[in-house]
Design a protein around this nucleic acid. Structure first.
Lengths: 137, 137
DNA sequence: ATACGTGCAAACGTTTTGCACATAC
DNA sequence: GTATGTGCAAAACGTTTGCACGTAT
């Protein structure tokens, strides 16, 4: 069994993620943590992000984007992805886990869970659509 | 506006996808289409897969896996991913689009749609769990 | 003292792209 | 004839890994 030792870098990565409500990519984490640890390497960031994910301390979000994103809040919640600006936001909405029961009814294996992403236009981007004349969209 | 010209390679890619109910990766498409066009390049496969996706002729499935998968059936349906063998299967289950309405109620932007993936054990893998003694799992 | 973490750089797997040639129209 | 498609190879991209050194315990 592998023992977990403290590291300032790991703490700093986790701390940074906790300050953010958007969902930074590994690169963004790297650029920010570098302000505190100028010599930290991208490899270390990846290693720690994946370690933190595996111990359930953070959550990895795979949203069909080219790269993974990370979220310090690990309680189950839903994400929205804006098709225009690409931002990823938390949704504040009721639990949907009953769809797993629904799925199970017509499925022969074993449903353990599900992931749902919503997409569309975020508040800011949908405002722009309303404000601008069609020609400028 | 870019004009779309016929190509035998593209047709062959689409045809191959239509014969498959699992959801091949670009690599798998490449290996199979190569039986008909031994000189086809992986680049051509990627170019055509992304072109077919953009005209809505096929569907791209991003399931947090390392690579994208492609599906010739473009009507909205749900996918299941086995956490053990990694297979991706279609779900035969009722429409869930009402969750978009549900999401919209507590959201400030504009919900255009959603993607849901179910995960767990497929029929085959869940059978193995039942058959084998715990020590062999 | 020793196991675990780090920085660095090289390697990896997937996908994209620049180019000259081939093909559809 | 011309715009679009292709094959090839190189590059880009995000991510992982091997190694020697550093640090926590």
């Amino acid at each position: 069994m592998k023992e977990l030792k403290y590291s300032r870098q790991r703490e700093s990565i986790k701390d940074f993620l906790m300050t953010r409500k958007d969902h930074p990519t590994a690169e963004e984490v790297y650029l920010n943590v570098r302000k505190t640890f100028p010599n930290i390497s991208l490899g270390t960031v990846y290693r720690n992000l994946s370690l933190l994910t595996s111990i359930g301390s953070i959550q990895k979000i795979s949203c069909g984007d080219s790269c993974e994103r990370f979220d310090a809040s690990t309680d189950s919640h839903y994400h929205f992805i804006c098709r225009k600006c690409g931002c990823v936001m938390d949704m504040d909405m009721p639990d949907l886990s009953f769809i797993n029961t629904l799925a199970d009814k017509s499925f022969c294996g074993e449903i353990e869970g599900s992931v749902t992403y919503f997409f569309g236009l975020c508040e800011k981007c949908s405002q722009e659509y309303v404000d601008k004349p069609e020609s400028k969209r």
